[in-house]
Amino acid sequence: MKIAILYGTETGNAEMLAEDIMAELEGAHEVTCANLSDIAPADISDDRFYLLVCSTYGDGDLPASAQPFAESMDGSDVSLAGVHFAVFGLGDSEYDETYNNGSFRLAELMTAKGATQIGERVVHDASGSDLAEDIAFPWAEAVVAQASEHLGQAA
C-alpha cells in the first residue's frame, strides 16, 4: 500500500515518532514522510493512505508546523472525498483541559473536507509511562490493515 505519513510538530517529538513509524512500515509498504508545513491541501490525494501524527502545543493549539496547513484548509474549498486517513496524537495529560486537542483538531479539519477517518484516534501521554512508539506501532499496523480493505484496489 502507498502510505503518506504527515506530522505536525513543535519540539520535534512528533517528527521523531513519524520517522520511526516510517521505518517500521517501510519493509511492507511504499512509505513517505513529510512535515505538514510542506503540504498544501491540494497535495492530498485518494491514491494513498494518510497517517497523521500530531502534537498539541500551548493552550490546546495545533503545533507550529501544522498551523499553515490548518489555515490553508480553513480557507480552501478543496474536497477530500475519497481520501482515507488515521490520526495519532501526542499530548501531556498534565494539561487535562486541552489534552491532545491538536490531533483532534487536525482530524476535524480532514473530515470537514470530506475525508474518511479509519479507526479511532489514538493518543500518547507524555506524562505517562509508555513510550510513544509502543502505542503508535500497533496503532499503525491496525489502521493500515483496516485501510487495505477500503483502498486495496487504489493502492
Binding site: 520535534g12 517529538n13 521523531m16 501531556d92 495529560s93 498534565e94 507524555a126 506524562s127
Partner: peptide
Amino acid sequence: DHQGTKGVVRQFAR
C-alpha cells in the same frame, strides 16, 4: 513537575 516536557530528551538520546 513538568516531566512531560522533559520527554524531549528522547530525541537527544537518539
